[in-house]
Structure formats: structure tokens, C-alpha cells
């Protein structure tokens, strides 16, 4: 791969081409917020936290899906980007019922981390308080739609890594929901292999093992990326 030059926040960086802005930022310790990104899965640019400004491009692009090009001038730290990141996290909190105090993921939640990172101390928009199901039909795991942020990491890990295709998405707009098979209880799934990868992939307390209590959940999302790497070695 040819080596190219990019400028991120004024810093000159040499990198190989064909990689995304997010990968370059990670390699160079430039902080970049993400929620729907998980190493090992295809990026979809859905959470819009990794938005960057690129000189000569009049739109904001998601860093996780945009590949670097030679002499690209990128900014990840402008006031506009920071303001938008804060609004995005606020909207996540207002959208569903994120009651950290009673959540298993409390203290080990990527949404909380994102909130701290953008300095979010309160939400300026009205909470929507939607009615969400909690699916406890699976013998070991729980799917709590109250905490779901629709990052679809579970859907992607199930399809792309496990190959089972248990998780899917239904409906549109704010009615959008993660579903097991054709919207049947998870416990009755004929495709789920009970592998538990979605539990680790989930950034919040939406999918968790039954054996944990409030604030006790520990996750290992890096496992997904490691697994994908190991499989490549085997091939």
C-alpha cells in the first residue's frame, strides 16, 4: 500500500492508503468517539459520533466509513463537531429509557462513556419515554429494548461473525426495533446458537447475561475483533 500524507487537526500524519480516518486516528492517539463501530464488523456510519470535517467537502462525513486520501485535511475537534456530538448523545439518552441507576451496564457502558466524553451533564430535550419490551425468554440472556441505541452491533456480529442471522431490524424511524428471527421471543429462536457474541458486542445494557445484577456487567467487546483476526490466521 502506498504511503500518503494526511493532516488531522493540523498534525501531519503519514499513513498507508486504503484505511479509514478512524483507523488513522486510533493509530495516532487522536481521540474519536464511536458507538456503532466495533473492530471486526463492517462499519455503517450510523451513530454519527465520529463525524469529521474535511476541507473541500461540504458535508460532514463519518470517520469510520471514509477512507483517507492523499493530502486530506481533516478536523475532528471543531466546535461544530463537538456540539453535534453532544446533541447526538443527548438524543440517545432522550430516545429510550436509559435509567443508569438500575442498569446492569452501569459503569461499564459505552453510552455513559460517550456522555462523559462530551461533557453531558443534563439533557435539554424532552424525554420520549417509549414503551419498550424486555425479552427474558432466552434461558441465559436478556434483551432489554429500553437500553438499545440501535447501533446494530448485535445484528452485524450475528450475521458477519457468528453467521447465524438471529438478529434483525424491524419498523422504521423511532419505532425501529431489534428483533430475533421474525419478531418472535429470543428464547424460541431457531437460528440463535446461544454463542453470546451479541452480549459482548452490545455497547450498553441492552443485551446481558441473566446472572448479573445492577452495575455488575462486564463486557469484552474487543473479543469480536480478536476472533476475526484469529480466523484470518486459520484460513
Amino acid at each position: 500500500m502506498p504511503i500518503i500524507t494526511v493532516y488531522i487537526n493540523g498534525q501531519k500524519i503519514l499513513t498507508e492508503s486504503g484505511v479509514t480516518i478512524l483507523e488513522v486516528c486510533k493509530a495516532n492517539n487522536i481521540p474519536m468517539l464511536t458507538l456503532c463501530h466495533l473492530k471486526g464488523l463492517h462499519d455503517i456510519g450510523a451513530c454519527r459520533l465520529c463525524l469529521v470535517e474535511i476541507e473541500g467537502v461540504n458535508r460532514l462525513l463519518s470517520g469510520c466509513t471514509t477512507q483517507v486520501a492523499d493530502n486530506m485535511i481533516i478536523r475532528t475537534d471543531t466546535d461544530r463537531i463537538k456540539r453535534y456530538q453532544r446533541i447526538t448523545v443527548e438524543l440517545f439518552f432522550a430516545e429510550r429509557n436509559h435509567v443508569c441507576a438500575v442498569c446492569v451496564a452501569n459503569g461499564n457502558c459505552e453510552l455513559q462513556q460517550a456522555g462523559y466524553a462530551v461533557g453531558l451533564d443534563h439533557i435539554r430535550y424532552p424525554f420520549l419515554y417509549p414503551e419498550c419490551n424486555v425479552d427474558t425468554s432466552h434461558p441465559w440472556f436478556v434483551m432489554d429494548h429500553n437500553r438499545c441505541i440501535m447501533c446494530t452491533r448485535c445484528v452485524r456480529v450475528c450475521t458477519q461473525v457468528e453467521g447465524a442471522g438471529n438478529w434483525g431490524v424491524m419498523n422504521r424511524g423511532h419505532d425501529v426495533r431489534i428483533i430475533s428471527d421474525f419478531n418472535t421471543p429470543w428464547g424460541e429462536s431457531i437460528t440463535c446458537t446461544d454463542c453470546g457474541k451479541c452480549v459482548h458486542a452490545c455497547p450498553t445494557g441492552a443485551i446481558w447475561p441473566k446472572a448479573v445484577a445492577q452495575g455488575q456487567l462486564t463486557k469484552y467487546p474487543e473479543m469480536i475483533g480478536e476472533l476475526v483476526e484469529k480466523r484470518k490466521l486459520l484460513q
Binding site: 429509557n97 435509567v99 438500575v102 443534563h122 424525554f127 419515554y129 417509549p130 419498550c132
Partner: peptide, 12 residues
């Protein structure tokens, strides 16, 4: 006080 938290759980 900030985001209704547990008291707000009856809002559903």
C-alpha cells in the same frame, strides 16, 4: 433531579 431517573420510570 437531572433526568428523572427511577422516579421517571412510571412515565412509561
Amino acid at each position: 433531579a437531572v433526568m428523572t431517573n427511577i422516579t421517571g420510570m412510571r412515565n412509561y
